[in-house]
């Protein structure tokens, strides 16, 4: 472990100033990702600014019927919050699908969103990785690709974003409150993460020193149902092979398979939590039969590139979306 200085921030502005003023400074929240990286040599900061003492730990009702979740709120808290469970089941379920109880108690909301890929080559400093060491190459391409991206990837990087929470926030049309040296700004959640392009070293659009202080959720559409379905090898403590956050507003007509609105986001398939807008359009106002769902997912996947290691994700994604939408239209939850 490379030596670094450790400081404890007492207010958000000074935390921002401390990190913004030093190129090799980083924020430390729950530490469940950063501490691993310190031990592995993946992160070698000169200064670590601890933000766990900041008062960013509340879950508050918004004026518009929404909810504001502080950046420092531990993952286990919103998962257990009655308002979250009632209004945003997709969010509670995504949180509970992530990590282990111990890690959920430790990890923060912002840290979850800003966690880095679990690509095995990114975490192994003896193998090339453009995200860790720009220009060194991508070892995942042609290597262990089981968790690699099939949408929005680039020749420089096929890493996936590991967060479950982020996939849920993507269908909830959340926004992120960010504090920077020049003050506060809000950005739509979909603008937080970025595709790798030719610079995979950057996961997000945040500038160095910008601190996420909260996540804001608008009120869910009236009558909306939502859920999160995660497919993984073992029943807990595993990253998604694929996952689906789904939100459905039933139509006023009699058949529950007719939806007035469908929102879908995919995890485990891209460098970002992937909002499946083409599939959503194809399913709006359509009876949600298996055939219609499969066709809509395939439409979304027209832009996908798969390899031998990721080819399975097409069928798995179709099946997972079927399971998620069937659950929402029938009200019967068969997958946990």
């Amino acid at each position: 472990m490379t030596p670094f200085t450790y400081t404890r921030a007492h207010d958000p502005a000074s935390a921002v100033a401390a990190v913004a003023g030093r190129p090799d400074a980083v924020f430390l929240a729950g530490g469940s990702n950063l501490v691993d990286h310190l031990k592995l040599g993946v992160a070698t900061p000169g200064e670590v600014v601890d933000v766990t003492g900041l008062a960013l730990t509340g879950i508050e009702d918004g004026s518009d019927g929404g909810l504001r979740i502080g950046a420092g709120v531990r993952n286990s808290d919103p998962a257990a919050d009655a308002r979250v469970r009632e209004r945003y089941p997709v969010l509670a379920r995504a949180l509970l699908a992530g990590a282990s109880p111990q890690i959920r108690h430790q990890a923060s909301t912002a840290g979850n969103l800003l966690q880095r890929t679990r690509c095995v080559y990114f975490q192994d400093t003896t193998t090339p990785c453009n995200k860790r060491e720009p220009g060194s190459g991508c070892s995942a391409i042609g290597g262990y690709e089981r968790y690699a991206a099939i949408l929005g990837a680039s020749p420089a990087c096929v890493a996936t974003h590991p967060s479950d929470l982020a996939v849920a926030l993507r269908v909830l049309d959340a926004s992120v409150v960010v504090l920077g040296p020049d003050g506060e700004r809000r950005l739509p959640f979909g603008e937080l993460h970025r595709l790798p392009g030719d610079d995979p070293s950057r996961d997000t659009t945040l500038a160095h020193g910008e601190l996420v202080t909260a996540v804001e959720l608008p009120a869910p559409p009236p009558g909306a149902r939502s859920t999160y379905v995660k497919v993984r090898d073992r029943a807990s403590y595993a990253f998604a092979l694929v996952s689906v956050a789904a939100l459905l507003v039933p139509s006023d007509a009699g058949d529950p398979r007719d939806a007035a609105q469908v929102r879908l986001a995919f995890g485990g398939v891209a460098h970002v939590p992937w909002r499946a807008t083409r599939a959503e359009e194809a399913l709006t106002g359509v009876r949600l039969t298996d055939e219609a769902i499969d066709a809509a997912v395939e439409l979304e996947l027209e832009a996908a590139t798969t390899s031998e290691g990721t080819a399975y994700k097409r069928a798995m994604l179709r099946g997972t979306v079927r399971a998620a939408l069937r659950e929402l239209s029938t009200g019967e939850r068969t997958l946990r």
Binding site: R232, A235, M316
Partner: peptide
């Protein structure tokens, strides 16, 4: 085995 996703329990 989940018929849609192939998950095994």
């Amino acid at each position: 085995v989940h018929a849609d996703t192939g998950q095994i329990r």
